[in-house]
């Protein structure tokens, strides 16, 4: 399996990255170089094997911990927006969203 420049463009768009032709070409070469070492993995027979999500689930079930339905977060808008690129009247500003 080998990626094409078209694949790179599609993936970059999905990831919201912009790659000029030079970077796109280098990315193509590097990704194909990487997927060359991935091939061995695809050959492994994994029929009947459960995927391992939380590593420690390898020795026992891990269940989601649930918290009680209580409100305990005070309004910290100011502190939370200290590093915001653009804020007006408490709202985060972005280029117009068209639906």
């Amino acid at each position: 399996m080998s990626l094409t420049t078209h694949d790179i463009a599609r993936i970059a768009n999905l990831a919201r990255l912009e790659l000029d032709p030079v970077h796109s070409e280098r990315m193509l070469v590097q990704m194909n170089g990487f997927f060359a070492i991935v091939e061995q993995m695809r050959a492994v027979d994994t029929t009947g094997i459960e995927p391992l999500a939380h590593p420690v689930a390898a020795i026992g079930d891990i269940a989601l911990r649930l918290r009680d339905d209580k409100v305990s977060e005070p309004d910290q808008r100011e502190a939370n927006q200290v590093s915001a690129p653009a804020v007006e009247r408490g709202l985060f500003l972005v280029p117009k969203v068209i639906e």
């Binding site: 009247r89 709202l91 985060f92 500003l93 972005v94 280029p95 969203v97």
Partner: peptide
């Protein structure tokens, strides 16, 4: 109320 922009309330 925002010219060319949208305000995000989360």
């Amino acid at each position: 109320d925002f010219v060319g922009q949208s305000g995000i309330d989360l």
